[in-house]
């Protein structure tokens, strides 16, 4: 069976004269789970930002995501400090989907709490719920399990897999990658 792919050809991205990605080429399958690995500063987050359209490459070509709607768990939670967990999770979607995602992630009793009233791990789960409720075509996860305990990592990974959309994930941790079951791996060095 043929699957769509994201194709990167000779992509270069420079910040302040320093090439974060230099002539990077890869084919990323748009199915299942793809894990991106590489040392800190290797350009994984920059690659994600290029794929999501938040940055433009200095040169090279990226194809395969033109008509896809990305859902994102950023490296930071990026929650609105003045909005409740439910309002945050409903950003870009509706409250019933957000409520469903929050309950799935074990935050059913915290719907009306503000980020400052929640722990770091809880806020991380709200950020994950927001991405799940959004219902994108591709799920981008930049170190999604930061601050989560083992049980909640598993619950979150199961919920993400159940979304049944391609997942692209940056993680340094082999055990975290294993939570998704079978996956492709792309190294960025």
């Amino acid at each position: 069976m043929m699957h769509d792919v994201i194709s990167l050809k000779n992509v270069t991205k420079t910040f302040g004269g320093h090439a974060v990605l230099n002539n990077f080429s890869a084919e990323i399958p748009l199915c299942g789970v793809t894990v991106f690995r590489g040392a800190s500063g290797a350009g994984k987050t920059t690659l994600f930002r290029l794929l999501m359209g938040l940055e433009k490459p200095d040169s090279g070509e990226i194809c395969g995501l033109e008509d896809k709607k990305p859902a994102v768990v950023f490296q930071e939670d990026r929650l609105l400090p003045w909005s409740t967990a439910l309002e945050n999770a409903a950003t870009g979607s509706d409250e019933s989907r957000a409520r469903e995602a929050l309950v799935r992630l074990g935050l059913g009793d915290n719907l009306c709490q503000l980020p400052r009233e929640l722990s770091g791990g809880m806020n991380r789960r709200v950020a994950i719920a927001r991405a799940l409720a959004y219902g994108g075509d591709v799920l981008f996860l930049d170190e999604p399990f930061t601050g989560l305990d083992e049980e909640n990592k598993k619950i979150a990974a199961d919920a993400m897999r159940e979304a049944n959309i391609p997942i692209l994930v940056i993680t340094h941790d082999d055990a975290e990658a294993d939570l998704f079951g079978a996956f492709c791996e792309i190294r960025i060095d």
């Binding site: 709607k69 859902a71 950023f74 990026r78 870009g92």
Partner: peptide
């Protein structure tokens, strides 16, 4: 700016 970026990504 990161919140604005988030808003754009989530289709606001």
């Amino acid at each position: 700016i990161r919140l604005i970026e988030m808003g754009k990504m989530f289709g606001l």
